[in-house]
């Protein structure tokens, strides 16, 4: 009975995960894509629970789905969420090659996991009840992986500073007046179209 339940939960979570991932990349409206990603994160949390990673599952929901995705949604709301056709534009062979590359990666990983690894990836090790709990994770973070812990905190600090700088008014400079002023210098061409010399559509020669 327990096993059957586990299987049901797993299948449901797996399908939700895959479906939401596909939804993210196929929806035209970025708002919907973001919401699909929230669903993806949720199903992943369930899978983590099945893998005895309780703390990580909780962190995933709190941090990832709770903070990061909210920030995403804020930005999408601010930007107005322009809808665009997902597959349009770009050189024709780009889409084909992209599918090929992604497919190749998938196949390779499947081959590696399924064939090359033999049966070695099948079992689970025996773990006690505290495996995946905050006690263990906290202990490791403060002893064996202290450096990673500290460096991660520095990375977060830098990201925060970067965010402030990117968003500050000083960077927007004369452009904040709006319109489409022409200017030289820098690496940006005048608004609204960037380097309008080469319209990307119909560039089959590339």
């Amino acid at each position: 009975m327990g096993n059957f339940l586990v299987w049901v939960v797993w299948v449901a979570a797996a399908f939700a995960c895959l479906g939401s991932a596909v939804a993210v990349i196929t929806f035209a409206n970025p708002f919907y894509s973001a919401l699909a990603l929230v669903g993806n994160l949720g199903s992943l949390a369930v899978l983590y629970l099945l893998l005895s990673a309780e703390f990580v599952a909780a962190a995933q929901m709190l941090v990832y789905a709770g903070a990061v995705m909210v920030m995403f949604l804020f930005v999408i709301a601010y930007l107005g969420g322009r809808a665009e056709t997902p597959w349009a534009g770009g050189p024709g062979w780009q889409a084909v090659a992209a599918v090929g590359a992604a497919g190749a990666l998938l196949v390779e990983i499947v081959v590696a996991v399924g064939l090359k690894a033999g049966g070695r990836l099948s079992e689970e090790a025996d773990v006690d009840a505290f495996f995946g709990g905050p006690h263990e994770i906290g202990r490791l973070f403060l002893t064996d992986h202290l450096l990673a812990f500290e460096i991660t905190s520095i990375v977060l600090l830098i990201a925060a500073i970067g965010g402030v700088i990117l968003g500050s008014n000083a960077r927007s400079g004369p452009e904040s007046t709006g319109g489409s002023p022409a200017r030289a210098g820098g690496t940006r061409s005048p608004a609204p179209s960037i380097s309008a010399a080469q319209p990307p559509e119909g560039e089959a020669a590339r």
């Binding site: 596909v22 997902p86 992604a102 996991v113």
Partner: peptide
Amino acid sequence: ILAAFLFATGALGVLIRRSPLI
């Protein structure tokens, strides 16, 4: 295998979509 599918899907999205948000 599931993780592989997720990765490949994400890669496809990066390579195909035009909106930086997506």
